[in-house]
Design a protein around this nucleic acid. Structure first.
Lengths: 146, 146
DNA sequence: TGCCAGATGAAAATGATTATCGTTTAGCAG
DNA sequence: CTGCTAAACGATAATCATTTTCATCTGGCA
C-alpha cells in the first residue's frame, strides 16, 4: 500500500503545513511515477506544468515530506548521490537495477536475528538498518541477452 | 584480516601502478586509522607530512584503491555523502555509530535465502547488496546515560 | 476582507567532486 | 648510472548538488 495524493495532503494539513500549488504539483509528480526520482528529475517534471517553480522549493518540500515519512531515499544505485523517491508505508527496502535504475520495494527483510546478535556481540544499541540489493532486472537482462 | 601497507603496495605494483610518495602517504594514512575517513579527512592527515599534496591526488588514489578492492565506502551514517574508508578483505558490512561515527565491520550477513527469494519473485539477477546497521556504540550509550 | 506566519523564488554561497592541462617523476631500457 | 616516456602530479577552473539569504508573496484563519 502506497500513500496517495489525498493522504499526503491530509497529513501535511494535520501537521500545520500549508497546501500550496507548488507542493501539490510536487506531490503529484512523485505519486504519479512508478520509479524513484532525483530532486532534479522531480524539478524537471514539475516545471512542465508549473514553470515558475524554484529548485529550492523542490528541495524544501522533499525534506518536509521525508521528515513526515511520506517519501524515502535510496543510496546504492551507481553514484552514492542521495536519490529522492516515492512513498512507502512502513519499513521497507530497495531492489535496484544497475542498468536502468528501476527501483522495486520489498518489505520482509528478516534481519531481527542478525540485529540481536550484533547488538550483543558489538555492544551496540541498534536503531535502524539500510539494506539494498543491486542487480539486473528482467527487462535489462533480456535486452542484454540479445 | 585487513590489508597492510605492504600488501596494498604490492597489489598496486602488480597491476602496473607506480608507487609514488603521495600514494604511499595516502595508504599510510588510511591503514593507520581505525575509523572510516572522508576524502577531506584523508587529505587533511596526509598534508601534515606531505604539505604539497593536492586534494585531486587524494580523490584519484582513493578511486584507484577502491577499484582494486583495497578500500571500501559507507553510505548510511548521517548525510548520505560518500564516506571513503579502510581496507577490507572480502565481503563485509558496517555497523555505524550515529553519535561518534565509529564504524565496525562484520562479515556474516546470511542474506542468501532472502536474495534467492527476491531473485525468483522479482526476476532480478542480483549481483550484490549493501547492508549497514546504524545505532549507538557502547561508549556513546554510556556517555549519554550519565 | 485583512493579516501574518509560513512559503516562495532569485541569486549567491557552499561543499564535494571532476575535468583540464602543463609540469614532474617512477621505473624501465640501455 | 643516465635518459626516456607513460603515468602521475598539482594548480586551477568547471561542474553539480545542496543550502543559505532575503525580499516578496500568499494560504488559511480571525
Amino acid at each position: 500500500m502506497l500513500y496517495n495524493v489525498r493522504q499526503i495532503e491530509s497529513t501535511l494539513r494535520q501537521r500545520g503545513y500549508k497546501i500550496t500549488p507548488q507542493r501539490r504539483a510536487i506531490v503529484r509528480a512523485i505519486t504519479g511515477c512508478r520509479e524513484h526520482l532525483t530532486p532534479a528529475e522531480i524539478y524537471g517534471r514539475v516545471r512542465r506544468e508549473h514553470p515558475g517553480i524554484g529548485l529550492v522549493t523542490v528541495y524544501r518540500t522533499l525534506e518536509t515530506l521525508a521528515g513526515l515519512g511520506l517519501i524515502c531515499e535510496t543510496h546504492a544505485g551507481g553514484s552514492c548521490r542521495s536519490y529522492l523517491v516515492r512513498r512507502p508505508a512502513g519499513h521497507h527496502h530497495h531492489l535496484i537495477c544497475s542498468d536502468c535504475g528501476t527501483v522495486i520495494d520489498f518489505t520482509d527483510c528478516d534481519l531481527a536475528g542478525l540485529e540481536r546478535r550484533l547488538a550483543r556481540e558489538k555492544r551496540f544499541r541498534i536503531s535502524g538498518h539500510l539494506l539494498e540489493f543491486v542487480g539486473q532486472c528482467r527487462t535489462c537482462r533480456e535486452a542484454a541477452g540479445i
